[in-house]
Design a protein around this nucleic acid. Structure first.
Length: 138
DNA sequence: GCCAACGTTGGC
DNA sequence: GCCAACGTTGGC
């Protein structure tokens, strides 16, 4: 199983809204970047991703699971981009802030810090474990 | 509100 | 095909 991190501005789509969708999940639409698209296409059913609030909060607030692999984005007129469906799995009890990630030496190579504008990013197993521990997840 | 990073567009 | 101009994202 692979790990990922997806970003959303809470004004546009927040963790609370994701949770309200329940097990039905919601498509992760609006990606208009080719690197992010490549990552979406690598996602497999059952993969997990951190849900990060950009701009407002700037913290990891929850974990989602991929429940449907990539298919064409219906909101994309050009037919070039794709979406996956994700459902909320569990909240992060103590949200992990960007500041905390920057302060943690083991996370210095995270894509979040290196490619801050990339909205769908891979996360390594080690990074995943570190952040879970910081967030109070067993 | 500003600005750095970076992707995209368009003139040549 | 190069590169300057411009737009967008996202941290501060």
């Amino acid at each position: 199983m692979a790990y990922w991190l997806v970003k959303s501005e809470p004004d546009a789509w927040s963790w609370d809204q994701q949770v309200k969708r329940g097990t039905k999940g919601e498509m992760w639409s609006g990606v208009r970047n080719h690197t992010a698209k490549q990552n979406l296409m690598k996602m497999k059913k059952g993969d997990r991703a951190f849900f990060y609030h950009s701009n407002i909060g700037k913290e990891i607030v929850g974990i989602v699971e991929v429940i449907r692999e990539h298919y064409p984005d219906p909101t994309d007129d050009t037919q070039k981009f794709v979406v996956v469906d994700v459902k909320a799995v569990e909240p992060v009890p103590q949200p992990v802030t960007l500041a905390a990630i920057k302060a943690e030496p083991r996370l210095k190579d995270m894509a979040l810090l290196k490619y801050s504008r990339l909205s769908v990013q891979p996360v390594t197993d080690a990074e995943w474990k570190t952040i879970c521990r910081m967030g109070g997840i067993k």
